[in-house]
């Protein structure tokens, strides 16, 4: 067994803006690591638009529903005191004219109401918000969440997905786009973050927001410029000025776009792409080694 095959590392692939190629980078990197004999997992945390399965075509071994613990009132025990309504910051439980009403879709599952109920009249039951799927795509372990349509809150589902992450693998997390709660939930705790962007004004604007967020989370990170030849050089200039490593620049290629549109893994259909992704994998591993040495040096 080579030393590489035992690498344990969590890499989150994120972007400020959607559609820059996050899923492409995450799935193809997973394929590259797996082909090197590394124990690899791909984790789709983009639970509002989970697309990794299109490219990895996993065999799902198990799937289960996941939810938020929400209050259920025992009417026999409840005396209508209203303490539960007072602690709830989300209007998920209210007491009106001595009657207790619960609204599972607003509940964050903090457990405050059952904690404060003096009559012990509150039991917690699961309100389903989505499903978690676990399976295999070749050698790659596949884990994904899928938010139920009409559900507003994805972070609890992302947490449920992350619970399934194996501790002995190189883990590729496909993060939701943006910089708000779902993205943060996905990226938190990652050893390294790959930010994917495009060389356009929109791409640059959204990259800046993502960079600020990842800095706020104190994660080491680098940038991949996808379709690097379609726009201008502002993204490159920005990265240089901010001393952000540019891990890879992947040119636009019409045939690649077509492969993507058919749901193919690029490293399987194109030799050029395999070279790009192999290089990217090496750089990510090197960056991780560097940041973990500097971490242990600073301790």
């Amino acid at each position: 067994m080579s030393s590489e095959s035992r690498i344990v590392m969590t890499i989150a692939v994120a972007s400020g803006k959607g559609g820059t190629g996050k899923t492409t980078i995450a799935t193809n990197l997973a394929a590259v690591f797996a082909s090197r004999g590394c124990t690899t997992a791909y984790v789709d945390c983009d639970v509002e638009a989970p697309n990794g399965h299109i490219f990895l075509k996993p065999k799902i071994a198990q799937s289960w529903t996941s939810g938020v613990p929400t209050p259920k009132i025992d009417a026999e025990k409840c005396d209508g005191c209203g303490e539960c309504g007072k602690i709830c910051q989300f209007s998920a439980i209210v007491v009106i004219k001595g009657k207790v009403l619960t609204f599972p879709d607003l509940c964050h599952g903090c457990g405050g109401c059952s904690l404060v109920c003096p009559m012990h009249a509150i039991e917690e039951v699961e309100h389903e918000i989505g499903t978690v799927e676990v399976g295999l795509s070749g050698e790659i372990k596949y884990i994904a969440g899928r938010l139920r349509i009409g559900e507003a809150m994805s972070p609890p589902l992302i947490r449920a997905v992350k619970l399934e992450i194996p501790s002995d693998s190189i883990v590729l997390i496909d993060s939701p786009p943006g910089t708000s709660c779902p993205m943060i939930e996905a990226v938190r705790g990652a050893d390294y973050v790959v930010l994917v962007t495009e060389p356009t004004p929109f791409g640059l604007n959204d990259l800046k927001l993502a960079v600020e967020t990842v800095r706020e989370l104190s994660r080491p990170f680098g940038v991949v410029i996808n379709q690097c030849d379609i726009g201008d050089s502002q993204v490159e200039a920005y990265c240089r000025k901010e001393e952000i490593p540019i891990l890879e620049q992947i040119p636009h290629d019409r045939s690649v776009a077509e492969d993507y549109s058919r749901g193919h893994l690029l490293v399987e259909s194109s030799k050029d792409m395999r070279a790009y992704f192999n290089r990217l994998a090496d750089k990510v591993l090197a960056a991780n080694r560097e940041s973990s040495t500097s971490k242990s040096a600073s301790l």
Binding site: L101, F103, L106
Partner: peptide, 15 residues
């Protein structure tokens, strides 16, 4: 200005 549950809060208010 509530994040969610505005209708519930409004009912509590008018009640």
């Amino acid at each position: 200005n509530r994040a969610g549950g505005a209708g519930i809060g409004a009912t509590e208010l008018i009640a």
